[in-house]
């Protein structure tokens, strides 16, 4: 047993801590003035943030924003050209085994030993972290690969590989988990299953940092998100605060034929109205006034109300146009 009480908790699946109802102390990450350039490309350009112990933190940004590079510096795969990363009081690029045992990492591309089965991969990674053999079965169970245990990784589907890669990252029940686009290839069920796994891990006090292109995922999972572009952090806050800060109008849509366009215009009172064969949509900053008027006309059939989402914040910040 290592000295920390946190590691005592770690020896058990799902964390005895979670079951006994106490939380880990967790791990704090402090990032200050990180810079990484490749030739002329400033992949990461003066990035600073702090992830609190036990926090669920998201890094969002378009392709090439610098998420992976930032994460790699935090994990200790790259030494920052300038700036610093501290995980508790360790500098990760020094690769201290004591810190690495507490870190779980899933890299953006799955990397496995050639020609080993799912079970053998987990056994091997487990042995590298000094984990008891029984852990493999739990992890297979957790990521839904029990019936693929004997299949070689080359023969797994993309999403199954990704699940195995996540299982390999979690095999030693780490205190802090870094996941680079963990849900990129997953089907909706597997995605939700992974959300549950990550929530459970986080609920027991473990710090989780992930990158994702799914805004709904970030909104559901993350305590706070950083939106990056071109190597810089544009915004950093809770998803709710970011959406509120956008102060975006609400879109109220009605099924086709519920209301004539003229009536809609009258109710909208100057707010934009669009109509197509999907229905009629009023975009307004006074949803209560519009909804009251609609109710008075008994025109609530097929009604849907959509507020702004994190996706709107993201597009607002990083631009809507596609960049090759």
């Amino acid at each position: 047993m290592r000295g920390r009480d946190a590691t005592v908790v770690m020896t058990s699946p799902q964390g005895v801590g979670a079951r006994l109802g106490f939380r880990l102390v967790g791990v704090e990450i402090r990032v200050e003035g990180l810079v990484m350039t490749y030739g002329d490309v400033r992949a990461v350009d003066d990035v600073s943030f702090t992830v609190a112990p036990g926090e669920f933190f998201g890094l969002l940004g378009p392709n090439g924003a610098g998420k992976t590079t930032t994460l790699e510096m935090i994990e200790g795969l790259r030494k920052p050209q300038s700036g610093s990363v501290r995980i508790d009081d360790h500098e990760p690029w020094r690769r201290e085994p004591a810190l690495q045992r507490r870190m779980g990492v899933q890299l953006q591309s799955s990397s496995f030993f050639e020609r080993l089965t799912a079970r053998e991969q987990l056994d091997t990674f487990g042995a590298l972290y000094g984990v008891a053999a029984g852990r493999t079965d739990e992890m297979l169970e957790q990521v839904g690969l029990v019936d693929k245990a004997g299949v070689r990784t080359e023969d797994l589907s993309g999403g199954q590989k990704q699940r195995l890669s996540i299982a390999c990252a979690l095999i030693h029940d780490p205190e802090v988990v870094f996941l680079d686009e963990p849900t990129a290839a997953l089907d909706p069920q597997a995605r939700r299953n992974l959300w549950d796994v990550l929530r459970t891990i986080n609920a027991s006090g473990r710090t989780v940092v992930l990158t994702t292109h799914h805004m709904d995922e970030a909104e559901v999972l993350c305590d706070r998100v950083a939106i990056m572009d071109a190597g810089r952090i544009l915004e950093l806050d809770t998803p709710a605060a970011l959406v509120r800060g956008l102060d975006a109008p609400v879109r109220i849509s009605l099924a086709p034929g519920t209301l004539s366009v003229d009536d809609a215009r009258a109710i909208a009172g100057g707010d934009p109205v669009t109509a197509d064969d999907q229905g009629t949509t009023i975009t307004t900053r006074e949803p209560s006034r519009v909804l009251t008027a609609l109710a008075q006309r008994d025109a609530l059939d097929g009604l849907s109300v959509k507020g702004a989402s994190l996706e709107d914040v993201f597009l607002e910040l990083t631009g809507r146009e596609y960049r090759a």
């Binding site: 795969l77 085994p97 690495q100 870190m103 890299l107 799955s110 990397s111 050639e114 590298l128």
Partner: peptide, 18 residues
């Protein structure tokens, strides 16, 4: 080459082994 290309070298670098 295979381990460098599939990223396993990097992954092993993060494991607590010399």
């Amino acid at each position: 080459v295979v381990w460098r290309r599939n990223g396993l070298l990097r992954r092993l670098r993060l494991a607590p082994i010399p």
